[in-house]
Design a protein around this nucleic acid. Sequence first.
DNA 1: ACAGTTCTGGACCGCTTCGTCAAAAACCCT
DNA 2: AGGGTTTTTGACGAAGCGGTCCAGAACTGT
Lengths: 199, 199
Amino acid sequence: MRAVERKFRRTGYAGTSVDDIAKAGGLGRGSLYAAFGDKNTLYLETLSAYCDRNEAGWAAVLDGPDDTALERLRAYLVKSARFVHEDPDGLGCMVTGFVVEGVDHDPRAEARVRQALASIGRSLTECVRAAQRHGDLDPEADAAEVAHLLMAVNRGMEVMARAGLDTAALDRVCDHAFQGLPLTARARSLWVPRSAATP
Amino acid sequence: MRAVERKFRRTGYAGTSVDDIAKAGGLGRGSLYAAFGDKNTLYLETLSAYCDRNEAGWAAVLDGPDDTALERLRAYLVKSARFVHEDPDGLGCMVTGFVVEGVDHDPRAEARVRQALASIGRSLTECVRAAQRHGDLDPEADAAEVAHLLMAVNRGMEVMARAGLDTAALDRVCDHAFQGLPLTARARSLWVPRSAATP
DNA sequence: ACAGTTCTGGACCGCTTCGTCAAAAACCCT
DNA sequence: AGGGTTTTTGACGAAGCGGTCCAGAACTGT
């Protein structure tokens, strides 16, 4: 039920009533409770389905051969930068919404979210390693740490987008973040056509 | 009323009832309404006070002479990395909470938050310029864009912290983010005592 | 076509919510 | 000490909440 997911993403868990959900989903309250039994479980199910799509989506962006791994990392950043503003309603990631909404989390939902983040982290780490193998990223760098940085930039750009930072500025943030990766000299010369750094 | 602020930060706007607030603030509902008139306004007032402290706090971290500007930028990142886990209850920034909670914002609160972000952005930009003047950051870099990147990393590390990333990992993210700044060779040699990059 | 089963939807219940109000407590100034 | 003013309070009402339930619609297999 995609409309329900969007409703949750728009107004959060606490800010969404079961009536809202029923209206958004186009069915009555009884049917909802018959299918899920609980607002909590309904949210969990929605969140889990969202995570499934999210993990698969990022994996599709990041999986591939070594020689394009750096491009894929760049694509990850670009997609992150545009995530919110590309959404028709400017909705952000449901995982971010869940994580930020409160500290008293349903443990099942928290576990699901951690699993999703771990999955994306794995895809990113593998892609970083691929870029290292291809000589585009410093082989000394810890791939998992670089992945964590990329995830943080992803979430950070999302928050900034939700706060009103426009697409152009976010694209520039994305550029700086990419340039900030531990690129090898070769990769840097390929990705920065003309630089004033080597006179 | 600091307890009220913490209650809002813990459970969000929609997740906090006026009774909760009254209990947290140690006074009755009537008094609350007499003083603020509205849950919305009460939240706005709390948020605004929080923003005041936040802006001042970051400005205190970032203001100073050119020769320590880069250190201050590093301090900004380190403090960002530890923000959540240093809080006794692991609470995050109220601004992030507000921004992420929903898309249908009270325009007054949204304006206040944008003002706060602009203020922090100004402090950061000025600090970046100071570091550029001192020859620690590439003078070609756009200071405002670097500031935006730093703000994004700040928010991103907060979200990752809320998602469960531990302090040690966050410190490493912070290190990588700092190394990713457009440091001049001089600054890099000062901040990275031994590097394998210059054989 | 029809009986049995599944699914749907809105009425319903008890509880919590936000906001109001009059009574009581606290305070103040001389 | 005491009269007047401000502040605090807990009870109150209407509305909204999550969750239950059952009459009727829709679908199934034959």
